[in-house]
Design a protein around this nucleic acid. Structure first.
Lengths: 175, 175, 175, 175
DNA sequence: GATGAATGAGGCTTCATTCAT
DNA sequence: GATGAATGAAGCCTCATTCAT
């Protein structure tokens, strides 16, 4: 991966996250990255290919992020980390950008990519089971859905502060 | 509103909901509506104007939908209806399309439009207060966030069935 | 067919005949026709579509040209007219351009389009039969091949004068 | 001439012959030859230079091909060999490709290159003179034009069999 | 009100070519 | 000699929009 390739990816990530995939032209990406437009196609073949490269990089990022939760043995910690995950993301500029893009892509392409969430879902189900919840699987689903809702607000609602809500949630789950 | 105007709006709604705003060209809208492309501009001035018309129609729809909840006096009913709202939407093809568009627009324009939700938030806060919840406002926020999460899943996760989850929620809230 | 449509066709005919299909850009065609480039695509869909439109117009032209020969009953006249056909073409600027294009396209697309020649071939075969030639079908083929060869020279050999050769041929065939 | 240079020339010959000069990109040539694109420019300076190299190679090939005819003393043999030349070409895959390219280039660049044909024309004129033909020069021209016509058919008319016609010609000329 | 011709700007992509390594 | 990164120009085509009818 050359230096300019990285620049292109970074520029695309920023612009796709800000303006959406189809509203971002390759020429804008090139200008933002400070490279010629043709270079995008030499390295990524397509505008689509550029998107795929970003997504692929994202999956690596997501896996490492989830790994910490999935490998946790303390059930309370699993839940706490799941809740805090969204909080952490919202407080880091680069992470926020990255996750906003993930959701934007989902809405533009209408693919949820639930398989990526499966390990997290399993870990949560197991955690709720250990804690004696009556419907552990549904509890797990609900928590992930809450996360989706929080992500929506963080990305779209200007000035939304999620700390109060994540604190509230941690209290609720006693974690 | 002439017949052709309605046709244009309907076509635009369908295409914007399916492919997104910026991925839908005015020529596609015209073709789908069976009218000339120029007519779109005569009636709605802009592509943007077309979108605004759709959003405006949406606000009316949303208001009538929310009215039933907001005017409810029984607090348990307020919560139940809020939960069921998303269920009802998911089971009606036209409604689903309409709401999908609303969320798609939110993600494309990054405007959440929280003011539309305010009456609902108030009604829920009041309901949770009446039921003696410790943090009624946060409970209200959480429920609306859950709704956002559910909407995300309904729109994006192929084959997602929300009945189990809405039942689970109603049980949780004992409504 | 609007005025601008005709202009586009005419410009395309000229440029395709002069520079070849793939060496002629749609922007050049537009400039030569004095219209906006987009108009080409509104009327002909494609660069390919533009070519097809030209070819279609050509087939009509070719049919009327051949009709005069095919409907001739005097066998000697059939042969004479076939030979003179190429002479006539070479002496008319517009016709020359048109036929040059036909051959250029053949060489660019590698489709000979023999079906168009079939009626002529039949008429010639019949003529040579009536005149008592031993191998009338082969004679017909030969004459058409000579025509192809003459066309090649007329189009490509700067300063080639075909009158001497067509006179020579008419003498040979005693027509 | 290094090995890679030959590979490039061979690849270019094939692609130019198949798709034409301007429809063949240097990147396609490089890919087909299995070399880097830059190498083409190091060795041949230009895309044009590549074409010239091919043409130059062609002239050598053509000269050796013509030499056998030109040096022939028996007039009947001169004519027979001229007729058979096109037959031989059509039966050899590599030769066919090579000659197709020659004609394609002619039609793309509109340069007939009649000087290459001059020795052949002279040899034929002399042969027809020796055989007592009335218009030996015109006969020579005609035969070469027939060859052009045959070449056109061989290259463009799928399934064209030239044996019957060359036999017919040899009979006609009693060679 | 309604059409469809017309346009200029911009979209994605490929091209021939250069240059550092 | 050979590669592959890099580029600017150009290619085909679509876009939103205007205007005469």
């Amino acid at each position: 991966m050359t230096e300019k390739q990285e620049k292109i990816l970074q520029a695309a990530l920023e612009l796709f996250a800000r303006d959406g995939f189809s509203s971002t032209s390759t020429s804008k990406v090139a200008a933002h990255a400070g490279v010629s437009e043709g270079l995008i196609f030499r390295h990524f073949k397509n505008k689509e290919g550029l998107l795929e490269a970003i997504i692929k990089e994202g999956e690596v990022k997501a896996r490492t992020l989830f790994a910490d939760i999935v490998l946790e043995s303390d059930p309370k910690e699993v839940i706490r980390k799941t809740i805090d995950m969204v909080l952490n993301i919202s407080s880091n500029r680069a992470d926020l950008e990255f996750w906003k893009l993930q959701y934007k892509i989902k809405w533009e392409t209408e693919k949820y990519g639930e398989h990526k969430m499966e390990p997290l879902h399993l870990a949560l189900t197991s955690a709720f089971t250990k804690l004696g919840y009556v419907s552990p699987e549904l509890e797990a689903s609900l928590l992930l859905i809450i996360n989706d809702g929080l992500a929506t607000r963080i990305a779209l609602q200007k000035g939304f502060k999620c700390e109060t809500l994540t604190s509230f949630l941690k209290e609720k789950y006693q974690v």
